[in-house]
């Protein structure tokens, strides 16, 4: 946003400012309370922390964090840093899902936004219909397909499954973004000397950048957080993604909530980092629905 458009700060006196900040702080506290509670649990040393109102760790310790982050496993006689593997799995799977999903969705969404072709309406309908089924419903067929194609227990297999659910959503998001870009702009670029592809790359894509950023982030997040498919399709702890790893701390007979909380904190860090980096695009993308001419 250019400086010319930034609205001048409203002057309301310190009383008004105080009221606004009080309300905001209250809102933040409300939103953060559960998170703080998880954090306090993660740093608690006592075996069974007593329930309390103020989220503060009893007998503060880093033990659980160390246990989660430093987890190792035995791999054919060799000791491997299993947490590192799992973190890498999660990041690779989520990034690949976002990339594959958006790369497939961009040309599809553009075609749907700009051209008329046979089967367009039907195609859209089918795309929409796939969104109505929960991912779990497809877990068993996906298992069978991956087994048949030898992709069971691989990151590639997981990425394919995630991308297949990420793509339709990304298409709808990006189609709206492309439709909001006036055709005039592309035509101007073509008169200026660009090919159709050139106009797309130099004009449409940059303008749609915020929308593409939001869409990628959503795809990344959904893959990063997904549990059920990962738990179904992976059975080797070296292939696990972080949500599956977390799940092991709360087994059927033995719930280790401190370790679970510590793991949850660690798992959230990359996402928080990503949001922090991308926040400018996100605000732009979410606020304006992508673009304004």
């Amino acid at each position: 946003m250019s400086p010319q458009e930034t609205p001048s700060p409203r002057r309301k006196g310190w009383l008004g400012a105080f009221a606004i900040h009080a309300v905001l702080l209250l809102g933040v506290a409300f939103a953060l309370y559960p998170v703080l509670w998880v954090a306090s649990l993660a740093f608690s040393g006592s075996a069974t922390p007593e329930p309390r109102v103020i989220p503060w760790p009893s007998e503060p310790t880093l033990r659980h964090l160390q246990e989660v982050v430093g987890a190792t496993a035995d791999d054919g006689g060799e000791t491997v840093w299993i947490f590192g593997r799992q973190l890498l799995n999660s990041l690779v799977v989520a990034t690949a899902t976002a990339l594959v999903g958006v790369l497939i969705a961009i040309p599809t969404a553009y075609a749907l936004a700009r051209f008329n072709f046979l089967g367009k309406r039907t195609g859209m309908g089918v795309l929409l219909a796939t969104q109505m089924f929960p991912a779990v419903a497809s877990a068993i067929p996906l298992y069978l397909i991956l087994e048949a194609s030898g992709l069971l227990n691989t990151r590639t297999g997981l990425v394919l499954c995630y991308a297949s659910t990420a793509v339709p959503f990304a298409i709808f998001q990006l189609r709206a973004a492309f439709e909001a870009i006036p055709v005039d702009l592309e035509e101007a670029a073509m008169v200026d000397g660009a090919t159709r592809l050139g106009a797309f790359v130099r004009v449409v894509l940059p303008i749609a950048r915020p929308a593409i950023a939001v869409t990628s982030l959503f795809a990344f997040m959904s893959a990063y957080n997904e549990f059920i498919l990962a738990a179904t399709l992976l059975d080797d702890s070296k292939m696990f993604t972080l949500p599956v790893m977390l799940q092991r701390f709360v087994g059927e007979y033995d719930a280790r909530w401190e370790a679970f909380a510590a793991g949850a904190l660690v798992v959230s860090l990359p996402v928080m980092g990503l949001f922090y980096v991308a926040q400018r695009h996100l605000v732009e993308g979410l606020a304006s629905g992508g673009v304004k001419g």
Partner: peptide, 20 residues
């Protein structure tokens, strides 16, 4: 010929300036 090969320039009613 494609527009780019015709050596023309156009002023659009909407101006169509590249916003980015």
């Amino acid at each position: 010929l494609a527009p780019r090969d015709r050596d023309v320039a156009m002023v659009f009613q909407s101006y169509a300036l590249y916003p980015h």
